[in-house]
Nucleic acid binder design. Structure first.
Lengths: 215, 215
DNA sequence: CCTACCGATCGGTAGG
DNA sequence: CCTACCGATCGGTAGG
């Protein structure tokens, strides 16, 4: 891995843990093993470094997104596959979720414009499928598709961003299931139960997400 | 309102919007209309100011919490009253939600200990009522009580903290219902539909929350 | 509650 | 990729 990539990786790590204002260029440089002035040769300002770090996360996401949408073109299993893929993406590196939540809090206007331009069109497509499900009587008639999806995105992002801390509220049980697996399982159950009209409400298969985390 | 209260109010505002590291004592002092050195007479360090600001929010919450629990002592309506009260508390000042989410990201270990000591005992009480509901067949048998509550707390907190930004993803409709009302309505619907075994899935009455926001 | 001031650290530049 | 350095701002103190 070349220096530029190392800088970006450490930037994401540090910004996710301490935020933009809480991280100095010196910290990042030393985590890479160079001097601050050398870092500023690769990225001429802290703002530009910040922008490039965000682009790294967002572009990874935009590579995955088309696959999600292909899976979302029909019924119940496909919908769950989308939720599962989204969860997997952020499980594979929780710093992505933390960075995005911080960004929403720190620069709401900039993210607003980004969402409008790059996320809302994709959301509209999924909403159409949800409305079809409502016409077919498979999806709860009172569900508000746009707002439902917003809540799911928000729940996935922030529950993974805060799990390490908020998990302290969950009591350990005597069975073999670890906290994180229960967390993801319940997340999927809530998404499913609040969407579909059905009697079956089993936990379902989430083996992939468990393998995806390294817990 | 005396100076000390003004300082705390402006501290909560600024920390919520820009975070601890992104806010200087000079900014807070000038928002109150005094000099930085005068602020440091009332609160001898930035860390102490931070602690007092947090205590202000948490103690407000702890005044409200017993009322919630009293409402939570039985059936379906009571449960919804608790969710509604929690939502109302954070709607009445969204900075509370933003500050708490930031705190979880910035100081996870400190918050972890706080949650274990002050929140987990209350949660255990609510969990018992959920388990009773499961025995009576009113609550989904696969629901994981602790984890479910964690997701609800997280969803309420972070959806209100990020609504102003994330709301950009919701398309405006032609009817009379504004975005924020739809947001809270869907939040309640998800909480209800993922918990109770029932056919009725109406939006329900959320007039209080709409009045509580000043939108 | 103020003015005046402190050392430390910040992001960034010059020059090699 | 480095050393050496810049002005600005930070949290905090002295003294009144």
């Amino acid at each position: 891995m070349d220096v530029r990539e190392q800088i970006l990786a450490q930037t994401i790590r540090h910004f996710a843990a301490q935020g933009f204002d809480g991280t100095s260029l010196k910290e990042i440089a030393e985590a890479v093993g160079i001097r601050k002035a050398s870092l500023l040769y690769h990225f001429p300002s802290k703002d530009i470094l910040h922008r490039r770090a965000l682009e790294t996360v967002v572009s990874h996401w935009q590579e995955v997104l088309p696959n999600l949408l292909r899976a979302a073109t029909s019924g119940e299993e496909q919908f769950e596959a989308v939720i599962q893929e989204t969860i997997d993406f952020f499980i594979s590196d929780p710093d992505r979720a933390r960075l995005m939540v911080r960004e929403v809090l720190d620069r709401p206007e900039a993210i607003r414009e980004m969402l409008k331009e790059h996320v809302r069109p994709w959301l509209a497509i999924i909403c159409d499928y949800i409305r079809k499900g409502q016409e077919q009587g498979r999806v709860h008639p009172h569900l508000d598709p746009e707002v439902y999806l917003l809540h799911m995105i928000n729940m996935i992002l922030s529950s993974l961003a805060t799990f390490e801390c908020m998990g302290a509220l969950i009591a350990t049980r005597d069975d073999e299931v670890d906290l994180f697996t229960r967390h993801v399982r319940e997340l999927l159950r809530i998404a499913r139960a609040s969407m579909f009209i059905t009697n079956k409400n089993e936990p379902g298969n989430i083996e992939r997400s468990v393998q995806g985390s390294g817990r």
